[in-house]
Structures are given as C-alpha cells and as structure tokens.
Amino acid sequence: MNRRGAVRTLLYIAGGTLVLPACFRQSGAPSIALQKLSVSEAEEQLLAELAETLFPTTDTPGGKELLLHLFVLKMVDDCHGPEDQRAFSDGLSAFIQWSHGKLGHSFTLAAPNEQVALVEAIQTRADDDIAKFYAMFKQRAIQGYLNSQYVMTNLVKYELIPGRYNGYFPVEKD
C-alpha cells in the first residue's frame, strides 16, 4: 500500500478528528485525537509494534502500515465503556512493565522474534490485566485487519453489490 493509500485508510479510520502522523513528532502526544483514553506517543509506538507483531509485513501489508493500532485506539475510545477503557489502560501499563522486565528493554525496541515469543507467552496467561488488554487489542486488531480497505479489496473481497444469490453453490473439494 502506498502512502496515499495509508493516509486514506487513516482518514477512514478516524474520520475528521485526527492529526496526521509524522515519524519524528516528538510531541509526546498520540497521532489521533482520543476523547477518553490517555495514550502517549511512546505508547502509541509500542502499540504499533504490537500490531506489527500480530500482523507482520509479508508480501502483504502489516499491522503498522494498515494502522491497526490506531483503529484499536479509536474503537476502544469510542465503542467501549469506562470499565473496558480502564482495563485497557491498566493492562497496557502492566504490559509495558512486564515486557521491559522480561526483555531488559522496551518491547518497541525488541527484535521481531522476541516480540513474537513475548506475545505468545501472554496468550497462555491467566485472566489478568495484561491478558485482558491483549485480548481486547487482538480482537479489535483482527476486526480492523479484516475490515481494512486493503484486505477487503485485495485479500478477502467484500462485495457491495453482489447482484446474485445461489443457495446451492457447490463447495470446491480441497
């Protein structure tokens, strides 16, 4: 996806309420306007890494390019209640601390294989703050991925106008 496409996707994600991201903003603020969540620029970068860990760039775009982390933030900010938002924020803080302890440095700076190993470790955790945060992030990232313009037009195509219905469509044998 080219930059223009990425910017358009971002606009679709966030409507008219955002400030375009820049790589070296150094403002400390997140790149989209959030009403309820309080997220720093560093946390946003970490979430971008997490999105990229879940959806790495292969021959198709990854989580960062598809701005899945911003989609997650937008959805948690607008579509979840205060309880979920608190759980998300608490879980994010806990994740930052815990991952730093495990890695000796920030998750953002970790090598991809370290990031994957860490995320796989979360998936086996009990139902604590980190697990709740991760589950919310992953569920929304998956939604954002499947509903992204790139995926809907290139990989799992969405038809706005099917113009047909067949109730006896043969299933292809594997």
Binding site: T9, Y12, I13, A14, G15, K74, M75, D78, C79, H80, G81, Q143, G144, N147, S148, Q149, M152, Y158, L160
Partner: peptide, 17 residues
Amino acid sequence: TNLYPYELDHRGEVTYE
C-alpha cells in the same frame, strides 16, 4: 448507502455514548 465497511468510522458499530 454506498459506503464500504471501512468507510464507516466504527465499521458499523454504534458508539458507547
């Protein structure tokens, strides 16, 4: 009427508010 799912801010979901 002609929006794709990704053109809806919240992909069709109603906000918490």
